[in-house]
């Protein structure tokens, strides 16, 4: 880790203000869209908007886009573990009733 070339750049106020405006806009959007009947897609849209907001906060407010490759790798790895937690749990709970297994 002796890479001195990239000094941490300083973002402009304009960039941060734009990100804030986008985040506030997405908050209003996700609230408004919840009152529209989209069937099962309501949850999909809500989560898609939340993930977009998370990505914006991480990349800009948390400076991930200026971070080292190692830090980026750790973050992506961590999110992967979260997906394993959620996905593996749901493979169990979502499929339990498919077969008449005793104990259910």
């Amino acid at each position: 880790m002796s890479d001195h070339s990239q000094e941490h750049p300083i973002d402009t106020v304009r960039t941060y203000a734009l990100i804030l405006a986008t985040l506030l806009g997405l908050t209003i959007l996700t609230t408004a869209v919840a009152y529209v009947d989209l069937g099962p897609f309501s949850t999909v849209i809500a989560l898609a908007i939340a993930c977009t907001k998370m990505t914006l906060v991480a990349l800009f407010f948390m400076h991930v886009r200026h971070s080292t490759k190692l830090t980026k790798l750790v973050i992506v790895g961590g999110l992967l573990w979260l997906l394993i937690l959620l996905f593996m749990t749901m493979t169990d709970f979502a499929t339990r009733t498919w077969l008449g297994v005793p104990g259910r």
């Binding site: 996700t30 919840a34 908007i49 939340a50």
Partner: peptide
């Protein structure tokens, strides 16, 4: 916020 407040 969306998961608790905005379900259907």
């Amino acid at each position: 916020f969306p998961l608790l407040y905005l379900i259907d």
